[in-house]
Computed example of a mutant assay.
Amino acid sequence: MASAPGSTVWPAALATRRLALRPVAAADVGAIARLWTDPEVRRHLGGPVDSNVVRIREKRCVGAPGAFAVVRQADQAVVGLVTVEPGARDGRTEVSYQLLPEHWGQGYGREAVAAAVTWAREGSPSSAPGVVALTQQANLRSRRLLEGLGATVEDSFVEWDEPQVLYVFPSPPAE
């Protein structure tokens, strides 16, 4: 899936059957900012982000390491954002994702997260502690997506005043 197998050098470009994941470009900022302000997208993420924070994020997101714009190959529409953050949680790489609501239910999230997890693993030494994702317990869509990709619940706890579920992705088979 990655353009350079075995490498997580940034910038990176990933591809699935229908999507391209690439560094956020200036032209993507409008769609990405919608992810931070849309009440449905932010329903399980603490609500819409304050406009001052959005302005700061808009300046910092272009080319930010590990931040992939998720782009539909057929028409180059930005459908979401996936981030890969090495060492984010107990030394493990955390994968996060958001899709615009008009693109929900089409399998784009599953494709994008699967590509990002594969890419994250490629750059990790075999001794690395793994790849995880966090979602609110109430976010059933996200939980189904993660479980559909083979991730399993490792822990549950309260963070940001809401019950959270930490998922761990299985290690790839030994070659």
Rank of each mutant, 00 (worst) to 15 (best):
R22A: 12
G105E: 06
V41W: 08
Q136F: 01
V95R: 06
E122Y: 01
A26Y: 05
E40P: 05
Y97I: 08
D50M: 03
F68L: 12
P48H: 09
V95D: 12
V29L: 13
V41L: 06
A151I: 03
S127Q: 08
Q98I: 00
S124P: 00
E94Q: 14
E111I: 08
Q137R: 13
L14G: 13
N52P: 00
V78H: 07
A116R: 10
P129G: 15
R55A: 15
H44G: 01
S127P: 00
V132A: 06
S126H: 06
V53T: 13
L99M: 13
H44V: 02
D28P: 12
T118C: 07
A26E: 15
R72M: 11
C61L: 12
Q76N: 13
G46Y: 03
K59E: 14
A69S: 15
L134E: 12
Q76C: 04
A138T: 07
H103F: 15
A151K: 04
G66P: 08
G66Q: 06
P23G: 08
V82E: 00
V41G: 05
L145Y: 02
E40C: 00
R89M: 11
S96V: 05
R92A: 15
P39M: 02
S96A: 15
G150P: 07
E111M: 04
E58S: 15
V54R: 07
L45C: 01
W36Y: 11
R141S: 10
R55S: 14
Y108R: 10
R89W: 14
A115C: 07
